[in-house]
């Protein structure tokens, strides 16, 4: 399974990528929406894990752009506690999605990754 991680916190996304790799996932990561869009031009991913709040392009904006390029891609959102309400409100427009709250539990993330792929 190929996973694209996007979070503006480089240490967060690089460490998470390493931990998922150790669990058998093929992982690529980006720290901006533009980086992520460049990655999908040259590679194919099953799932994108997106931070909700990022400079210049939010996780939801990025999701819409990624989905336009890769209709089969599935999404999981990461959020701090403060943006959970924002996510629920925005999610009404885009349909049911998965979201996880930081700090993450790696086992829960792995479980959600497997769930979204099974859909």
């Amino acid at each position: 399974m190929k996973v694209l991680l996007v979070d503006d916190e480089e240490q967060m996304v690089s460490t998470l990528a390493e931990r998922l790799s150790l669990r058998g996932f093929e992982v690529s990561w980006a720290i901006t929406g533009l980086d992520a869009l460049a990655k999908v031009e040259i590679d194919t991913f099953n799932v994108a894990v997106l931070d909700m709040k990022m400079p210049l392009m939010s996780g939801l904006e990025l999701k819409n752009k990624l989905q336009a390029k890769c209709p089969a891609m599935k999404f999981i959102f990461l959020t701090g506690h403060g943006s959970k309400a924002d996510f629920k409100s925005a999610a009404l427009d885009i349909g049911k999605e998965y979201y996880l709250i930081k700090p993450l539990n790696i086992d829960v993330l792995v479980q959600k990754l497997r769930e979204v792929i099974a859909i």
Binding site: T15, E18, H81, G82, S83
Partner: peptide, 23 residues
């Protein structure tokens, strides 16, 4: 809001790195 978000981010990175040590 901003401070709690920033603190959460720092904690999240610490947790991932501690988790990586466990791994």
């Amino acid at each position: 809001i901003s401070i709690s978000h920033e603190t959460k981010n720092a904690l999240a990175i610490m947790k991932e790195n501690a988790g990586l040590v466990e791994d």
